[in-house]
Amino acid sequence: MSSPNAPLDLTIDGGALTARLVDFPSVSGDEQPLADAVEAALRAHPHLTVDRFGNNVVARTTLGRAERVLIAGHLDTVPIADNLPSYVEGDLLYGCGTSDMKSGVAVALRLAATLPEPNRDLTFVFYDCEEIEASRNGLGRLAAAHPEWLAADFAVLMEPSGATVEGGCQGTLRADVKLTGTRAHSARSWLGDNAIHKAVEVLRRLSEYQPRRVEIDGLEYREGLNATRIDGGVAGNVIPDECVVHVNFRFAPDRTVEEAADHVREVFAGFDVDVTDSAAGALPGLAQPAARDFLAAVGGKPRAKFGWTDVARFSALGVPAVNYGPGDPNLAHKRDEHCSLTAIAETEARLRAWLG
Rank of each mutant, 00 (worst) to 15 (best):
V27Q: 13
G171Y: 07
V275R: 02
P160F: 11
G232N: 06
N55H: 12
G192A: 09
R313I: 14
A184W: 07
H74F: 14
V245S: 11
L191S: 08
Y87C: 00
R265G: 05
D100Y: 08
N194R: 06
A155L: 04
I132T: 15
L63T: 00
V57C: 09
V200G: 12
T11V: 13
R120I: 00
P160R: 03
V57D: 13
H185Y: 04
Q32G: 10
D336W: 06
Q288T: 04
D193H: 04
V257H: 04
S207P: 01
L75D: 07
V38I: 15
E117I: 03
L341A: 01
A19P: 05
N83L: 05
L203T: 08
E220N: 10
T276F: 01
G15V: 00
V267H: 15
K178L: 14
P253K: 06
F268T: 02
A151N: 10
L111T: 12
N248A: 03
G73F: 12
D51Y: 10
E148W: 12
Y324Q: 03
G168I: 00
T123G: 05
V202Y: 12
E348H: 11
S2W: 11
P326A: 11
S161M: 11
S135N: 08
E148R: 09
L142Y: 08
L206S: 09
R212E: 08
R335C: 06
D241Q: 07
D274C: 02
A145L: 08
A187W: 01
N330F: 10
A304R: 02
F251C: 09
A296V: 01
A312G: 06
V202F: 08
H263R: 14
D241V: 05
A44M: 05
A312S: 15
T11W: 00
I216K: 05
R213D: 15
R229A: 15
H146Q: 12
G236V: 01
F124V: 08
A349N: 00
G192Y: 12
V107W: 05
L48V: 11
P79R: 08
H338A: 01
E130L: 07
G171L: 10
K198E: 00
A280M: 04
G325C: 05
T276Y: 01
G97Y: 04
L139V: 08
V105K: 10
D153W: 03
N330H: 14
A321Y: 09
